[in-house]
């Protein structure tokens, strides 16, 4: 009996060996680019000089001075944090709601080629980089772009609206364009979840005389609810990531008031100007908060969706 179990174990080990070997490159990458650089955190507590080593003479240890400079002295830091939260939370909310609605509606579509076609088309923008998408959206919303041409042409506004240089419109535009670009991709998960719902439940509903709306409401939606909860809790870790690559490509000094987020702020005053210690200080603060949020969301995911890794 024992020897049999041992043999099974040994066979399992042999079977899983290739998988472990396949994991080596990924683990190595993770170590080189994520684990080893953690030592660089020391920069946050120095007046770091990139010319000298981390602990060299040229880099002076300054304690919490960098954090004080950024978070207490800089007049914009509070607004930047507020912007980050507003933009990130709105994006998270819409990235849940729109793809879920889209997936629900798409699955009601009975014409297969239309369904496939639509899904592919909305899925594609995800693969455009923000450098390209940013230029496109800046053109579309410019004073000579087609949105303004339409608004002026229909006499809805007397003269072109400066969408991209307006503190009223910039934030909504950032959030909306991000959703437009990404919702097709996010919907894939929900479409998969809908497909995996047991077909007999619909048959039972049919027998009970449910119409299409009631089937969606009482069968499909509860069926994908665990997935929705899971996606929601997982996205909590991104509350401080408002999408720097998008905003860097779309913003300008006039909309810093509403559009500047932690990452772009750090990019401008830290990386662009060789103030690596300031960039690291903000990055570290961000990581600590994100870490807490990820732990919390992991607990929540476990409780509501039974999702565990460890």
């Amino acid at each position: 009996m024992v020897s049999q179990r041992g043999a099974v174990k040994a066979r399992r080990r042999v079977n899983s060996l290739p998988y472990h070997i396949m994991m080596i490159p990924a683990v190595a990458l993770l170590a080189v680019f994520k684990v080893i650089p953690i030592a660089g955190i020391v920069m946050a507590f120095e007046r770091y000089n990139p010319v000298a080593p981390f602990f060299g003479l040229a880099s002076k240890f300054v304690g919490l001075q960098n954090f004080r400079t950024i978070f207490l002295m800089h007049p914009d830091s509070r607004q930047v944090i507020i912007n980050t939260l507003i933009i990130a939370v709105s994006k998270i909310a819409l990235h849940l709601a729109i793809p879920v609605m889209f997936a629900l509606l798409l699955c009601e579509c009975r014409v297969q080629w239309l369904k496939r076609g639509v899904q592919t088309i909305v899925y594609l923008p995800h693969f455009l980089s923000w450098v390209i998408a940013g230029v496109m959206f800046r053109q579309i919303f410019s004073t000579t772009g087609f949105i303004n041409a339409a608004l002026v042409g229909l006499r809805l506004v007397p003269e072109p609206v400066m969408f991209m240089a307006s503190n009223t419109y910039f934030r909504p535009i950032v959030i909306l364009t991000d959703v437009i670009k990404g919702f097709g991709y996010s919907a894939v998960v929900y479409i998969a979840a809908i497909t995996s719902i047991d077909i007999t439940l619909y048959e039972a509903a049919d027998i009970d005389g449910a119409d299409r709306w009631q089937k969606m409401r009482y069968v499909t939606f509860p069926g994908i609810l665990p997935t929705i909860v899971l996606m929601m809790t997982l996205s909590l870790g991104n509350v401080l990531n408002a999408g720097s690559d998008q905003i860097l490509n779309m913003y300008n000094p006039v909309v810093y008031r509403t559009g500047d987020i932690l990452d772009t702020f750090v990019y401008r005053i830290g990386l662009q100007q060789l103030q690596f210690h300031l960039a690291t200080a903000v990055g570290l603060a961000k990581s600590v908060i994100s870490m807490a949020l990820i732990l919390a969301s992991y607990k929540l995911a476990d409780r509501f969706a039974g999702y565990r890794i460890f």
Partner: peptide, 22 residues
């Protein structure tokens, strides 16, 4: 080296905002 980058950034931003009427 400590503050130059930040005050420069502050200046550019303020000037752009004033010029454009923001």
């Amino acid at each position: 080296s400590d503050y130059g980058a930040m005050v420069n950034e502050l200046q550019v931003t303020a000037f752009m905002q004033i010029i454009s009427g923001a």
